[in-house]
Computed example of a mutant assay.
Amino acid sequence: MSVSRPLRVAILAGELSGDILGADLMSALLKRFPDAEFEGIGGPRMLSAGLKSLYPQEALSIMGLIEVLPHLFSLVRARNRLRDHWLANPPDVFVGIDAPDFNLGLEVVLRKAGILTVHYVSPSVWAWKQWRLKKIARAVDHMLTLLPFEADFYKRSGIPVTYVGHPLAEQIPLTVEQASSRLLLGLNADRPVLGVLPGSRGGEVKRLGEIFIQAAKLCQQQLPELQVVLVPANEKREAELRAIGFPGQWICATAQASQCMAASNALLVASGTVTLEAALYKRPMVIAYRLAALTYRIARRMVKVAHIGLPNLLAGKRLVPELIQDEVTPDRVAQQLLPMLREPFSGPLIEEFTALHHLLRAGGGETAADTIERLLIERGTLCR
């Protein structure tokens, strides 16, 4: 299959979890179209894969109903600039990765202009905001979902969809060796390790950082031999956590979440994609999340699911503890973590995580690239 010029792909990932997906998809597309050109918004992985950045990713990494308000003008301005750029220079396909509040509005305009639009990572419409389905139907030619039950939901709603699984399920082996990661992080191989991952957004660190640090200190008081690895998502988050303050003997492993997970006995994580990665590493975890008070009061009335953590959502039951809003205190968190740190990994829990791992091995970026190629052929952009 070929085009008479390089394939032009507009691609936009609003945060670090989307950067993983975007880079994986770009790699798969480059196998099919070695001269493909990519431009948009992404993180370090996508930039390394060849993305021409049109706007910094950090500017989009804002979550919440109320939290976004101070940034609304700059977000609207960024979206308008991107809209005007792509309307004047139409790509062959636009791929919006997650960030639905930003991407869907952009997709509506681009699709109306005749540009193929693909949305990668379903908005959580099955949990809340089901009224958004009408906008999704106007915005996207095709939805790519990470989770199988999401695909079923869209099929019932008549929206074209493909379940692709998660690329991390392909990249992470079913059994992960612990000793080498401990060696790389400078940890003692024979002492327990707690990994602390307080989120990739500034708001998450602001609301969870101090609580997570205090909870880890309480665990260390009960288990003096405990080693703690703190994982800021990037240098900016590291500076924010250092301003909060943490013991100098802790390992600060900025942007090394995977190594930390492999090395740890248990994890303390902010709710998000990182919980899925932790499950793929087969590590017990405590999931915690706090929102701005008004955002939480609004969301509590609208959310229709029993769990917030992806491992629990996928399993349809509570595999690991979840603490939300006022439940997230240093004492409560430490109480949940200590049994995980004192006991070896649970056989039944590992079996549950392994089943999820197999479920999520649906091709990831390769399946997503196959779908995009098929859509381009059907549209006539590519020749058979």
Rank of each mutant, 00 (worst) to 15 (best):
S2M: 08
R5S: 13
P6T: 07
V9M: 02
I11A: 05
G14R: 10
M26V: 08
M26Q: 12
L29V: 12
R32H: 07
P34C: 06
D35H: 15
G40K: 03
G40Q: 01
I41R: 04
I41H: 10
G42F: 09
P44W: 06
G50W: 09
L51A: 11
K52G: 00
S53H: 08
S53L: 14
P56C: 10
E58T: 04
A59M: 13
M63L: 11
V68P: 12
H71G: 08
F73R: 15
V76G: 13
R79P: 09
A88E: 14
P91W: 06
D92F: 02
V93C: 09
V93K: 05
V95I: 15
I97L: 07
L110S: 02
R111M: 04
K112G: 13
G114D: 03
I115G: 10
I115L: 09
I115N: 11
V118K: 05
H119P: 03
H119T: 05
V121E: 09
P123E: 00
V125C: 08
V125Q: 01
A127T: 05
Q130T: 15
W131A: 14
L133R: 01
K134H: 14
K134I: 11
A137T: 09
M143L: 11
L146S: 02
Y154D: 10
G158I: 04
H166Q: 06
T175L: 13
S180W: 02
N188M: 00
L194E: 01
P198W: 00
P198M: 06
S200Q: 04
S200D: 00
G202W: 07
G203A: 10
L208N: 10
G209P: 05
Q214G: 07
Q221K: 13
L223E: 12
Q227A: 06
K236V: 14
A239K: 14
E240Q: 15
I244A: 08
P247N: 01
W250A: 00
A253N: 02
S258Y: 09
Q259E: 13
A262W: 07
L268V: 03
S271G: 13
L276Y: 06
A279K: 07
Y281D: 06
R283L: 10
P284R: 07
A288R: 10
A292F: 12
A293K: 08
L294T: 14
T295I: 12
T295F: 09
R297L: 15
R300C: 11
G309K: 09
G309C: 13
L310I: 15
P311G: 12
N312K: 01
N312A: 07
L313V: 14
A315Y: 02
K317C: 14
R318S: 15
R318D: 12
V320T: 09
P321S: 03
L323R: 11
D326H: 15
E327P: 08
T329C: 04
P330C: 11
V333C: 08
A334K: 01
A334M: 00
Q336H: 14
L338P: 07
M340H: 11
R342V: 10
R342C: 10
P344R: 06
P344G: 00
S346V: 04
P348L: 08
E351Y: 02
T354G: 12
T354L: 14
A355I: 09
L356M: 15
G363H: 05
G364W: 00
E366L: 08
E366N: 12
A368P: 13
A369W: 03
T371Y: 08
I372E: 00
I372C: 04
R374E: 11
I377P: 10
R379T: 01
R379P: 02
